[in-house]
């Protein structure tokens, strides 16, 4: 199918884009990589009357270091993030996860900020943003504000942004010392949306206990789901296999409420959540130990 008719604008800078979004409000949609919006429009599930194409706004394309981490422009292509040595060094969890996102053709076009703003509960990047305590810079003609990723996701495809606001930049803080990370997901096919996925970071204290743990799921709820009870169970304890198993069971049983669809039942998703938690936590702990050893 083809989309319904719409007006098309191609602003050259952020200011012009914000003016257009301010003028058209709910009727407008920013067009980033188009990997979700365009199919949605073709199926007539979305019928914006105005498209504001961000692809000509050079100032939204960047990856740079800051004092405490990385700054990524919202329009940076996912493939550029995947191939960036900076990202590999300072945000290894993102580097490890990028190949799981769909297929290279989609990552060539899809953008880092587009995926975050689209807020698909099955997408990897929103879960990573929550895991890494990313902060998102949101602008409008009225001004700008920073939002923590964990406050950004409100519901299915719904974020904290107003219709006149635009996500322009993402700040990814460095991982603390002695921190390990891991990502894993289970999909029916190579490159498909996952039936369930999980990201984790684990920070070890000097005495080898877990100082902090973060475990965030995708595809098991309406938005990235942080397994807070499992995290609490891990904190302050020695990272044994038994502890990880207990945390995985807690996460699957108490932290999530997955749904059923034609690809997986809720029961199976819950089971996958347990398996994935076990796998990502175990790998994050291993890596945390390795970085602790490296620094000794």
């Amino acid at each position: 199918m083809k989309p319904a008719a719409f007006d098309y604008f191609a602003p050259k800078n952020i200011e012009e884009a914000l003016a257009l979004l301010g003028e058209h409000g709910y009727d407008a949609k920013p067009l980033a990589g188009g990997q979700s919006l365009v199919p949605t429009m073709n199926f007539r599930l979305a019928q914006p009357t105005v498209l504001v194409d961000l692809n000509g706004i050079d100032e939204l394309f960047f990856i740079r270091e800051s004092g405490d981490g990385l700054r990524i422009g919202a329009m940076t292509r996912q493939r550029a993030v995947e191939r960036s040595p900076l990202v590999q060094r300072r945000a290894p969890l993102i580097h490890e996860t990028m190949p799981h996102i769909a297929h290279p053709q989609i990552r060539n076009r899809g953008t880092f900020g587009g995926s975050l703003a689209h807020a698909d509960p099955a997408s990897e990047l929103p879960a990573l943003a929550v895991t890494l305590d990313a902060r998102l810079r949101v602008q409008s003609s009225r001004g700008e504000r920073w939002v923590a990723a964990r406050d950004f996701y409100l519901d299915l495809f719904a974020t904290d942004m107003q219709p006149d606001e635009l996500l322009v930049e993402i700040a990814i803080p460095d991982l603390p010392a002695r921190t390990g990370w891991a990502f894993d997901e289970v999909a029916r096919r190579h490159g498909d949306y996952a039936m369930a996925g999980a990201a984790a970071t684990v920070t070890l204290a000097e005495d080898g206990t877990i100082a902090a743990a973060r475990l965030v799921y995708l595809s098991v709820g309406d938005f990235p789901t942080q397994a807070v009870q499992a995290e609490a169970l891990l904190t302050g304890e020695q990272p044994t296999a038994a502890l990880i198993r207990a945390a995985a069971e807690t996460a699957a049983a108490q932290d999530i409420d997955p749904g059923s669809d034609i690809h997986a039942s809720a029961d199976y998703r819950r089971h996958l959540a347990k398996v994935l938690a076990g796998r990502v936590l175990a790998r994050a702990v291993e890596r945390a130990k390795m970085t602790a050893d490296d620094r000794r």
Binding site: G191, I262, H263
Partner: peptide
Amino acid sequence: NFIQKDGRTLTPHLSNYLIPGVAD
């Protein structure tokens, strides 16, 4: 997995009727 319910097809698209890609 071609799924029908009450005589209606629930998998009428190649996004939910999954055929293997070369990697699968």
